[in-house]
Write a protein that binds this DNA or RNA. Structure first.
Length: 423
RNA sequence: GCGGCCUUGGUGUAGAGGUAACACAGCAGAUUGUGGUUCUGUUAUCAGGGGUUCAAUUCCCCUAGGUCGCCCCA
């Protein structure tokens, strides 16, 4: 094969597009209910934007970015996530007025240069929200509630919401120091990766999957014990609000996310239907990012849903329920024999479509038998058969494909007749 | 960036060191103007390159791709 899709990319095929559109539609509907408006930043941005916001030492920035130079030698990067572009946009386009809250959502492809595996692609799609301007814990609760609402509406009920607080710029540095001291004492017992993490991102040691590291982590100082009072209060308000809304969640004090900009609340929705890459949604609060990128100090929070993974869970669920992916049925198929008949069919089709009925015909010049077969595969409700005799009479045969009844219907009566039958 | 497994027609699968089997789909016909059943015919040189061999698609190596993990993340 001469051309292949680039590694880590996928073609989303017509056979699976229904499920994609259903998810997208559900998300949009719910976002609009909560008064979020869509924003569409570009697919690539200046490289600095990502390295400043996500963090130079993170995996995303240090080894996963699609970075290139354009013809004027600007360093650009295909967005690995959309929060930084959205923040850039609200600053640049002045969307944030004083003392206002701003609610946005976005949707589209993201790019990370990673080795592909189940649920992980180099081009993948996210749909997400960001809300700016408020540090109220109710905001955190609102977006988490909104995420759970989306998954409920999609009938995905075996998901678990993990939630944690990673502190803020006041209390987190103290904790990190404490953690560093602890792990330096126990360095020999942690894995190679964790020794490196001690320098780059000590928090990540907390959710290392290596069992020996886990043993060391068990006795490590707890993040929640070193949160400052404000952070503690904030977190408690978030979870009590969620409880009030009957959202099921699990506090996971080892949940640390890989992007540097998170403060206080972080959360992740995971599915047990997936392989190692089991997070279908992740997000949290990022109160310092807007200022860091040059805007006024503005608290913010948001999440992103990974569409490929949601699609995968939904496909698995519908298989388990024994649903078939279903052919889309059409109202009418015109089987025409000969060029002249085909032309008549062509004209009739436009009238029928104007009535809002789905209709099609064969352009390959197949035999009648083959056209009937095609109609059958398209699950056509009716077939209108136009041959040479019919051309003279200006009347052709309308066949009901379910009952096999057929009757003569004049060309100029066809759309009325069908319209009547459809209702 | 690291590791395991895999790569045969449109799809899903067999197979053996000596030049490929089955199912489904597709197309054509049996039924020269009618579908969903049945029957018949037809559709590949086994990812690409190199090596071993009288001979490889089957053995070895490399490359590409797939897949599942590690890391990390949606």
């Amino acid at each position: 094969m001469k051309y292949q899709r680039p590694r880590g990319t996928r073609d989303i095929l017509p056979s699976e597009i229904d499920i994609w559109q259903k998810i997208e539609k559900t998300c949009r509907e719910i976002f609009e209910l909560f008064n979020y408006r869509e924003i569409r930043p570009p697919i690539f941005e200046s490289t600095d934007l990502f390295s400043r916001s996500i963090g130079k030492e993170t995996d995303i920035v240090s080894k996963e970015m699609y970075t290139f130079h354009d013809r004027s030698n600007r360093s650009l990067t295909l967005r690995p996530e959309a929060t930084a572009p959205v923040v850039r946009a609200i600053i640049e386009d002045n969307l944030l007025q004083q003392n206002q809250q701003l609610k946005l959502y976005y949707q589209g492809p993201m790019f990370r240069y990673e080795r592909q595996q189940a649920g992980r692609y180099r081009q993948f799609h996210q749909i997400g929200v960001e809300i700016f301007g408020s540090n109220n814990p109710l905001v955190d609760a609102e977006i988490i509630y909104m995420a759970s609402k989306i998954f409920n509406k999609l009938n995905l009920n075996d998901l678990v919401i993990n939630i944690n607080s990673v502190g803020d710029k006041n209390c987190r540095p103290n904790y990190i120091n404490e953690l560093k001291r602890y792990f330096e004492k126990n360095q020999r017992q942690v894995c190679h990766d964790c020794t490196k993490r001690l320098e780059t991102n000590p928090l990540r040691i907390l959710d290392c999957k290596n069992p020996t590291c886990q043993n060391v982590v068990k006795l490590a100082p707890k993040l929640k014990d070193s949160l400052c009072n404000e952070c503690k209060m904030h977190f408690n308000r978030v979870i009590s609000s969620l409880s009030k809304l009957n959202v099921n969640y699990q506090i996971n004090d080892q949940l640390v996310r890989g992007l540097d900009y998170y403060t206080r609340t972080t959360f992740e929705v995971v599915s047990n239907q997936l392989g190692a890459q089991n997070a279908v949604c992740g997000g949290g609060r990022y109160d310092d990012l807007v200022e860091e990128l040059g805007g006024k100090s503005t608290p913010a929070t948001g999440f992103a849903i990974g569409l490929e993974r949601v699609v995968e869970v939904m496909q698995k669920m519908s298989l388990q329920r024994g649903e078939d992916q279903g052919v889309k049925e059409i109202d009418l198929f015109i089987a025409a024999m000969g060029e002249e008949a085909q032309m008549i069919g062509f004209e009739l089709l436009t009238k029928i479509r104007e009535k809002g009925l789905t209709a099609d015909q064969d352009y390959l010049g197949k035999s009648l038998k083959a056209q009937m077969k095609a109609a059958d595969h398209l699950a056509a409700k009716y077939v209108y058969i136009i041959g040479e005799e019919e051309l003279v009479k200006k009347t052709a045969i309308l066949r009901n494909m379910k009952t096999a009844e057929q009757k003569e219907v004049a060309f100029d009566k066809l759309s009325e007749e069908l319209h009547g039958l459809a209702n």
